[in-house]
């Protein structure tokens, strides 16, 4: 559990550097983290957790599989700026939760945002920020789509981390919608030459 959670920000940074090919790794780690964060069992109904984990696996594998036949981005990769921004945001994400503060847990938090696992809050925020930095600063739709998917993973993790089970359903559906639309647009915008020497079949959609 702790290992998956600890590796998750590094996987997100890897997705920032390597692009779409590292996204399945992020998705796998996110699914593992989702399952193990909720293993403590604050509520007995496990269906939202299963749904969130399945969504994390789906958005990590299906877009990568669908986009496998298309060309890589030819645009210049602005890697350094995105990496610096992501690292800064990771530090900022770690500063958002006062870890040693006991009154933070007993304080007057609204019931539905009280986190199940406190380390998962910063990890989810860091993964989301890394994805957003990728989305904002890298160029080329495949790299940006990798950022979108990473950010979606982070939001899924933070949704599962709240005690309200409806959040997982809502955010899971929202993430599926975004991943579907992003994949569709990426297929339209990618270079339509397929890697194998298949003659053009007029597939312009």
């Amino acid at each position: 559990m702790t290992l998956a959670l600890a590796l998750l920000p590094f996987a997100a940074l890897l997705a920032l550097i390597a692009g779409l090919s590292a996204v399945p790794f992020v998705g796998l780690l996110t699914a593992l983290s989702i399952v193990f964060v909720r293993q403590g069992g604050l509520f007995s109904l496990a269906w939202p957790v299963v749904f969130a984990a399945v969504v994390a696996l789906i958005i990590a594998t299906v877009p990568v599989g669908l986009l496998a036949g298309y060309e890589e981005d030819a645009t210049p990769s602005r890697k350094a700026g995105a990496l610096i921004l992501a690292l800064l945001l990771l530090v900022a994400a770690n500063l958002t939760v006062p870890v040693g503060d006991v009154s933070f847990f007993a304080g007057s938090l609204p019931e539905f945002v009280r986190p199940v696992s406190v380390p998962a809050v910063t990890v989810a925020l860091g993964v989301t920020f890394a994805g957003l930095a990728t989305m904002a600063l890298r160029s080329g739709i495949r790299r940006q789509l990798a950022g979108v998917l990473t950010a979606c993973d982070g939001v899924l993790l933070s949704a599962v981390n709240t005690p309200d089970p409806s959040m997982a359903w809502l955010v899971g559906a929202c993430v599926l919608l975004v991943a579907g639309a992003g994949t569709w647009l990426a297929r339209r915008l990618s270079l339509l030459r397929e890697r194998q020497q298949v003659p053009h079949s007029g597939k312009m959609t």
């Binding site: 958002t96 939760v97 933070f104 938090l109 945002v113 009280r114 986190p115 809050v121 989810a124 925020l125 989301t128 994805g131 957003l132 989305m135 904002a136 739709i141 940006q144 979108v148 950010a151 979606c152 982070g154 939001v155 933070s158 949704a159 981390n161 709240t162 959040m167 955010v171 929202c174 975004v178 639309a181 992003g182 647009l185 990426a186 915008l189």
Partner: peptide, 21 residues
């Protein structure tokens, strides 16, 4: 895609914020 990117960024930030303790 650019419009979707802006909206997804905004909504993801808002969702993360609403879920943050």
């Amino acid at each position: 895609w650019n419009m979707l990117r802006r909206n997804v960024t905004g909504t993801v930030l808002a969702l993360t914020g609403l879920l943050h303790p």
